[in-house]
């Protein structure tokens, strides 16, 4: 398990691994929003939490189709499936590696990019907290979607369509928590709901993804 995790990290960080793709996309979205909205700092402050969350979600989505497809194409997934590792564990570990290489950089970059969107000072802490709580769910749901579409050539479109509805609750509560904090309100209710969703996803999705993968590998 640990070997798989570190292999995935090494692969993501080496040339052609796709590390930084999500981060660059996040940066582009957040940098371009002020240009498209215009020089109205009050409006930017108002939409900043939502834009940051949406940017992080789309950046996460962008890197999902590599999560299992690469291993499927070069045959490693078949070999892993015949190894002593359970498929549920393989999917969970790959989702964890995906989070470390995609979700975690987004969490760390969000406060810096918040400055570009004139985010209210009271919102920074909760923004980072909500992203830290929510992005693991994005990676795990994404791994489930990747398991559903593994074996489909250019399955990226189908993957996005399948995964987006499942991302909605995380997006709603995550952005809501960040917005409430930015406006000086108490963000604890959406944060608890966000944490609940993430825990439920982490508990259930590996089994769903493992079952789906078993069918798809046939």
């Amino acid at each position: 398990m640990r070997a798989l995790f570190f292999r995935d990290l090494a692969l993501a960080l080496r040339a052609g691994g796709g590390f930084g793709l999500g981060l660059a996309f996040f940066l582009i979205v957040v940098v371009l929003v002020p240009f498209s909205v215009g020089p109205q700092s009050a409006l930017l402050t108002q939409i900043a939490p939502g834009v940051l969350w949406l940017g992080a979600l789309l950046a996460c989505l962008l890197s999902l189709d590599r999560l299992l497809a690469v291993d499927w194409e070069d045959g490693a997934l078949d070999l892993l499936a015949t190894s002593p590792l359970p498929l549920e564990g393989i999917v969970a570990v790959k989702a964890a590696a995906h989070w470390v290489t995609t979700g975690l950089p987004l969490v760390l970059a969000a406060p810096v990019l918040g400055v570009l969107l004139n985010l209210a000072p009271s919102g920074y802490g909760v923004l980072v907290l909500s992203l830290a709580l929510g992005t693991p769910a994005l990676s795990m749901i994404g791994a489930f979607g990747a398991a559903l579409t593994v074996g489909i050539k250019r399955g990226g479109l189908l993957l996005s369509l399948l995964v987006l509805p499942l991302y909605v609750p995380t997006l709603i509560f995550g952005a809501e928590a960040a917005r409430r904090a930015a406006q000086g309100l108490d963000p604890s209710t959406p944060l608890f709901l966000l944490a609940g969703i993430t825990l439920a996803v982490l508990a259930a999705m590996p089994f769903a993804a493992g079952a789906v993968l078993r069918v798809n590998l046939r």
Partner: peptide
């Protein structure tokens, strides 16, 4: 099991590839 595809990672060295499968 060994199939048509070898499941090798192009970005890893020969030793890293083998060591990965050994530890799995």
């Amino acid at each position: 099991y060994a199939a048509h595809a070898d499941g090798l990672k192009a970005a890893l060295t020969v030793a890293e590839n083998l060591r990965f499968w050994a530890s799995v």
